[in-house]
Design a protein around this nucleic acid. Structure first.
Lengths: 221, 221
DNA sequence: TTGAAAGTGGTACATATGTATCATATTAAG
DNA sequence: CTTAATATGATACATATGTACCACTTTCAA
């Protein structure tokens, strides 16, 4: 057993931990909240770069410049750490998507705009090491084997779906829910295949034009 | 270093190994060929069930009811073993796809037939433990990190693409290559998401109807 | 100021894992 | 039958890893 003080083991009044899951992190010990967040970011960076399998306490410690002790202090087990990292990932992704949607909220929405918005989001994902879509694929595969990872992701997925459906409706889709599903599946598939391509940039360009074609086709129906 | 006799280490006249890569396995020691194949199948089963990370020499030995020694005898390193397993996977998948295409070769091809054929293939994949689409996702992620895994998969991917483009052309697509890309991406994305769903069967049904809608939309363009 | 909660450092240890080694068995070609 | 190639068995070992444990320091509410 770990020392009595370790956060996740005992009851723990845990201001730090509670704050990390909602309130602003200016609670009693903001430093701990900060470290915790850094650890989670480190986990996601490792997942993106080398896969979930490469996430070890020691690797995370090194990546976030913390001590080995910190990793076991903030998370009861490794699985816990990974689970929290995925939760964090979903949070971040949603924030990012909301931001993009917000930016487009007051513009007139025509098909071209929708495509631009979707693509902007995708590009942001590609450039943001903390919400890397590679991590998302790892997350999905992890869920396939450990269903307890699922709930957070499912909520994320649903908001994504709903948001896109709304957009599709605005630009004139007659079956917004279905079209949103199709577009999302298309995006995932394309992203996934990009991973095995040596010419990613070219592939991304192709993706954009195919996406435009797809949206056109769906609307023309 | 391993014993001098180990197949992959030294020059090795390796009838067994060579046969495994083409000719029929009735060479000198067909038994070895057989064992090798069983090992690879075991690897794929483990990958499907628990992920690449769960592939250890010992796990493979247990899964294929071979000795630990066999795993290091037939493959120089673990990475080699995994690489070969992925190669095997691509081979199997292609054979399966060719078989399905063959079955549809002489039928009149209308949009509905194409959808049926594509779906039949997908269903076969879902049911075949040796060509599990879960393993395919693992393979793609592995490639993202270890490009030396890529070549086999890329060839597989290209044949898939070309085959589907042909089908799309037959049923009247005006941009068969693009439409094939779109449909494939859609399929991947849908399959991927299925992994995180508790209601897989329902999801599959949705997939089929969405696929039909997608093909219609693309052709109507 | 003080004391309990929060956080850190270093080390330890049982287990899992990749791979090596030595010896032995099995096969089929000559 | 002999013999070299092929295949297997048992065991060994250095390393990596998850987690525990003890002592120590820092922070802040009362």
């Amino acid at each position: 057993m770990a020392a009595v003080g370790d956060q996740t083991r005992r009851g723990h009044k845990g201001v730090a931990v509670r704050d990390a899951r909602g309130d602003r992190p200016r609670g009693r010990y903001a430093r701990g909240v900060e470290r915790r967040r850094r650890l989670l970011e480190a986990v996601l960076r490792i997942v993106t770069r080398e896969g979930v399998a490469a996430v070890t306490h020691r690797a995370v410690a090194a990546e976030s410049e913390a001590s080995l002790r910190a990793t076991t202090y903030y998370f009861a087990t490794k699985d816990d750490m990974i689970r929290e990292a995925f939760r964090f990932f979903c949070e971040q992704s949603l924030e990012q998507i909301d931001a993009t949607s917000e930016a487009y909220r007051n513009r007139p929405v025509r098909p071209g705009d929708a495509v631009a918005m979707i693509f902007e989001n995708v590009l942001k994902e590609w450039d943001n090491p903390n919400t890397s879509w590679v991590a998302e694929f790892e997350l999905i595969l992890a869920i396939a084997r450990e269903p307890s990872f699922a709930p957070e992701y499912r909520a994320f997925q649903e908001r994504l779906d709903a948001g896109l459906a709304q957009t599709m409706e605005k630009i004139g889709s007659r079956e917004p829910a279905r079209d949103a599903r199709i577009v999302l599946a298309f995006l995932r598939g394309f992203e996934l295949e990009q991973l095995s391509r040596p010419d990613r940039k070219a592939w991304q360009r192709k993706m954009r034009s195919d996406l435009a074609g797809l949206v056109d086709a769906l609307l023309a129906q």
